[in-house]
Design a protein around this nucleic acid. Structure first.
Lengths: 350, 350
DNA sequence: GCGATCGATGCGACAAGCGAATGTCTAGCA
DNA sequence: TGCTAGACATTCGCTTGTCGCATCGATCGC
């Protein structure tokens, strides 16, 4: 498996403090010399079973073993525990000694811990427990994530889900730092994301948002992007690189950015006022104000960006994360069908 | 706790799990299915150590193992836990997965239970914990047990001691029933006690209590028991068998019992009033009222009774019980030196 | 690029643990 | 009192598991 560490401090975040035990050395203890003996959990079943039945033979029968195995297991346990007899051997069975009586609750505690661990791990495996920490960018949060989240919570109510918002780069940083298990990100060029495992969700076309009265607003067919080369563009950043306009750059012309507006609602206002045009991802198409028209672009030069569920490469995916990727994919095809099939423009009639 | 009487009567109130056959393979488990507890405690140390250090190699160094052993232990653990990865293998070490993070507290709970068990067993072994339930007959409680009990409590303050009073037969019944760990009993003929392990404490001579004005009260030397053959005797039971007078029977004459008085203080009153004589064990010699004289009997026919710490034969003695027998022996030689050395009569001058 | 680091794995050896059979002890019974 | 049945302990082969050693593959820092 290929791995990609980038940031690995050699420790794990949660358990260091919980371990509380940089000072717990087993080599020599002060009083009692409690050596935490090397025991198999087999002894636990055997011990409790024998204690319950008061007989090696009966315990062996219920365990599916032979009597000699039980006898030796108990002997080994007694030897490992410092030689203290745990059972009095009687002619008609065995009987707990004081030491054995003392051991019973501890053995039961161990069994309970083991049982709880197995149960919790099983819950984790069946996506009935554990936690899922994910992040998503804004437009995904508008049209994709809610549906996926609803389906996930309905299907796996036991999973504790926490969500974050942020731009793709910030989410990836959170992912690398280990604060997120999964991030819904978008990119027009997957190259710089090679450090992450990208689970493809959908490729969403980018539409051009124009004011309702724009000359191209009534155009019956997808328009060529070049026809907008001379338009004023509104972007979230003064430089097109790294933004949605990155896709435009690869179409051969450098857009003239006249206004820098980051917030999505505000950006719509600028477009509606005729101050310029901007690119709108398909996921945001349903939340466009009515006095704006979205133009579909010609397939051959239509910019698109991919939406991915990103995880850290080499870091194991929890079953919950895998399941969440599944529902994200479902949401991608059901909530945004326009992204997969071409239809006539405009997408949303002004 | 249960299983007191004749060994296995049923079950102790405890965990009700187990009863799982095979099917521990990594097939799809239903949630809540019985766990797979076939693990060694070795994995526990390995897992926590690896989790703490974030490295197989470092964990191996601290454990005194090789890296390959740690690697395979972790792999075995992961396989035993259903195949879920517990660590992400990174180029610079390992990192807990979600499953591993879930497992940490359970593993620590197991370690804590094991540690607590070892500590409590060590305390038991060093007579620093546990319980001791003993019983004693009345005169032993007057002169022997208090000293032993004081020494024991001072030496082993951690042991929870419970005491019962009763006659020898009742104490032995309690012992057999499992309600006592040890019983201080007395007998003139140890034959019927063969079912028990008798730890000899002392042989106490029996004195004859006579009123201060009795003709033999001023006798300078031990008297022959036969000189009291014609006396009126006071006994705790209408028949001498099974009582202190049992010893007299073996001296050849059957005492004439004129008064039956069980309680010791009352019996003294009868003797002081000149209504008869009675036998007084040495342990009670110090608590005789001043108007009574105790006569030492000639060695050759002096009745004596043995005082023993009785335990159930074949039932293991707890270290606390063994220690208590020790202090009982110490108390026997220090508190009742008269029992071991012959001295001039009377024991207690009237 | 090259050495260093870290985990995984094949191999040989050793120890642990199992089943089957046998031994020992005791209670119950005639 | 002798016999039988039941229960735990022990011995004997054999399987299984686990460790150390050596090596491989992958990756990072210089």
């Amino acid at each position: 498996m290929a791995t990609m560490p980038t940031t690995h401090d050699g420790s794990y975040d949660g358990a260091r403090d919980a371990a509380q035990g940089g000072t717990r050395h087993r080599t020599h203890d002060v009083s009692g010399d409690a050596p935490v003996p090397d025991l198999s959990t087999v002894w636990l079943r055997v011990f409790l079973e024998v204690a319950r039945h008061g007989s090696f033979t009966v315990a062996a029968r219920t365990l599916g073993w032979t009597q000699s195995a039980v006898s030796r297991q108990v002997s080994a346990l007694e030897a490992a525990l410092g030689g203290a007899r745990l059972f009095d051997r009687l002619p008609r069975g065995v009987r707990l000694t004081e030491a054995g009586r003392v051991l019973v609750p501890h053995a039961e505690a161990v069994a309970q811990s083991l049982h709880g661990a197995a149960r919790e791990l099983a819950a984790l495996r069946e996506v009935a427990g554990g936690r899922l920490r994910f992040g998503a960018f804004a437009t995904a949060d508008a049209a994709l994530v809610p549906w996926a989240l609803a389906a996930f919570r309905a299907r796996h109510p036991g999973v504790r889900v926490t969500r974050e918002e942020g731009l793709t780069p910030a989410l990836l940083d959170r992912l690398t730092a280990g604060h997120l298990d999964l991030a819904v990100v978008s990119t027009t060029r997957p190259a710089p994301l090679e450090a992450y495992e990208l689970h493809h969700l959908l490729d969403e076309p980018l539409y051009v948002a124009v004011p309702a009265g724009h000359p191209l607003a009534g155009h019956p067919r997808p328009v060529a992007l070049g026809r907008l080369a001379g338009a004023d563009w509104i972007s979230g950043s003064p430089r097109p690189e790294g933004t949605l306009l990155d896709a435009v750059l690869r179409q051969g012309f450098r857009p003239r950015i006249t206004h820098v507006v980051a917030e999505w609602t505000a950006k719509q206002g600028y477009v509606a006022a005729g101050l310029g045009v901007t690119l709108v991802p398909a996921l945001a198409a349903t939340s466009v104000r009515p006095d704006i028209t979205l133009l579909r672009l010609r397939d051959e030069d239509a910019p698109a960006r991919g939406v991915y569920a990103a995880t850290v490469r080499g870091r194991s995916l929890s079953p919950a994360a895998q399941a969440f990727i599944g529902v994200l994919r479902e949401a991608a095809v059901s909530a945004v069908p326009a992204a997969t099939t071409a239809s006539a423009a405009p997408v949303v009639p002004g």
